[in-house]
Design a protein around this nucleic acid. Structure first.
Lengths: 231, 231
DNA sequence: CCTCGATAAAGGTACTACTTATTAGGCCGC
DNA sequence: GCGGCCTAATAAGTAGTACCTTTATCGAGG
């Protein structure tokens, strides 16, 4: 990534963090100086932010930071920036709610449409997760990697590009939570085998079972999080 | 919107339609000539496409059209382009599946978190929909507008920015389907009052009811579509 | 056959000049 | 004094050019 990417990330993170608050107007020339880069670079960064809806450029006015409601909250960049800012907990919660909504549907569709290799791979990953969990390695880098791979494959196996596109956000949600140490040290009973029964349901093509197990799994995780939040 | 936006839409639509197929390499200079605009304009358009994942720019190589799996299918621009291309039916189907996953969750959350004004407005819109439907105006512009407003408000009332961000895609799904005349001329019995019972459930704060009604409603619509597709 | 280095091709950055839309403010007429 | 119009100033948009940086490719030499 070049200077452009740096500026983009810098600006994106700051605005996502709320530093230049909505309503603030920035000037192209001003940014040009603050970041010591050419106009070209700034303009391209602004263009991207504009497409996310975070800013709006108007002639004779300047670049206005837009209210949050207008931002495209699903944009991968914005999600990442949000997870590195002061609102990361809320962002994680929102992501979790999204997962609860989306993954069961993906599981259901995957049971119908997944290829044989995808089904096999899902089973393999689930078994690996189960093994690692049994050994108490539920908070290691390795477990996280496999977990991410499993859920990503689940979403892509749905055959729905819109669901598949959520693999990245979901991965960041999982990574974000583990890296903040928000996972319970001792998982609730039954949580461990859930990946396995889910994978088996998909492999056997049982839509309802797949959906139900996915849903149960996510509700379990959700509950654990909510628990760790209160005290 | 200026020349930049034109070029962006032009390129986006074409690539989404599959004309420059994935793997194709474009040259900045070449595009510059084909569209008769300055390098600045092309570069900014490419930048945006790159952020959506549709192209990747590499030095000494050029601008490569990326495989579809790498595109951010949730990007509002891409969704719009897809709905204007040859794949619009698949896109509509994907969007519908997404709605089935997401809206019940939004309804459930809205029952808990919606403000009083939001609840009232939802009720008002639902009543309006009901009235229009009773009069057999289910395929008019007016009905579409209210329908879009209702579902958009439902999503934003969830209090979850990620769900709220789906208002635009959902709106386009509804508009796209009506404009293609894919709605059944005679709705299935019970469909008409569904908005109303849903709005009432949300207004009264009954999460489970809200979720159930939303789910039932969407399954109904989904079924109607599937029916119209087969023959 | 492999390695290293020269070369050229393409995007990335900088800078400058000019264009265009838009707002604010002043001027004039009523 | 008030309202509408005209003008000027401002800031983004576009164009064009020169130069930098990366990197694929190919050839010379080991």
């Amino acid at each position: 990534m070049g200077m452009h990417g740096d500026v983009l990330n810098e600006l994106g993170r700051r605005i996502a963090a709320g530093d230049p608050r909505p309503g603030t107007v920035l000037k192209l020339a001003q940014l040009e100086q603050e970041h010591s880069v050419s106009r070209t670079v700034i303009r391209e960064a602004i263009r991207v932010l504009e497409n996310i809806g975070m800013v709006a450029a108007r002639r004779r006015v300047g670049i206005t930071v837009q209210p949050r409601e207008l931002w495209d909250a699903l944009d991968p960049y914005l999600i990442q920036w949000s997870l590195h800012g002061p609102l990361r907990h809320q962002q994680l919660e929102s992501l979790m709610e999204l997962r609860v909504a989306v993954e069961p549907m993906a599981a259901s569709l995957a049971a119908e449409r997944a290829t044989v290799t995808q089904r096999a791979e899902l089973l393999r990953l689930a078994e690996q997760l189960n093994d690692l969990g049994q050994q108490g390695l539920g908070q290691t880098e390795e477990y996280l990697g496999v977990d991410v791979a499993f859920h990503a494959l689940l979403l892509t196996s749905s055959g729905n590009p819109l669901l598949a596109a959520m693999a990245t956000p979901v991965a960041e949600e999982l990574a974000g939570r583990t890296k903040l140490g928000l996972h319970p040290t001792v998982p609730a009973p039954g949580t461990l085998e859930q990946h396995l029964v889910l994978a088996r349901a998909i492999a056997s093509g049982d839509r309802k079972e797949a959906e139900a197990h996915s849903h149960a799994h996510l509700l379990g995780v959700w509950g654990e999080i909510a628990q760790g939040k209160a005290p």
